[in-house]
């Protein structure tokens, strides 16, 4: 699976009860779209750390890194390349 597929699958399985329909596209805001809440952000960070072996710093907890599938994929890519 690609990073995108793993991230997408995690969100669908854990926040959408397996129904991918509400996640309209990879640029959709997860917070504004009501897909994840604040605890969900914490869960998402834990998933990134466990699945991809990255460490997320406090100042990286921003929407540009975490608020869509596309942003998450880009963030993981940058962290793994660093």
């Amino acid at each position: 699976m690609t990073v995108r597929d793993k991230v997408h699958a995690y969100i669908v399985e854990n926040f959408l009860f397996g129904d991918a329909a509400p996640l309209a596209d990879d640029t959709m805001s997860l917070l504004d779209g009501g897909i994840i809440d604040s605890v969900g952000v914490m869960e998402l960070v834990a998933f990134l750390e466990q699945e991809f072996g990255v460490t997320v710093a406090d100042d990286e907890l921003v929407p540009d890194n975490l608020d869509s599938v596309a942003n998450l994929v880009g963030f993981v890519g940058r962290k793994k390349a660093a």
């Binding site: 604040s38 605890v39 914490m42 869960e43 960070v45 834990a46 750390e49 466990q50 460490t55 997320v56 710093a57 406090d58 907890l61």
Partner: peptide, 24 residues
């Protein structure tokens, strides 16, 4: 006002990503 599910928190405390608690 905010509400937090205790069992969701418990799962995070038990997760292998030990650094997460320190990040929050």
């Amino acid at each position: 006002i905010d509400l937090c599910d205790v069992q969701r928190m418990r799962r995070q405390l038990e997760a292998p990503a030990a650094g997460l608690v320190a990040a929050v």
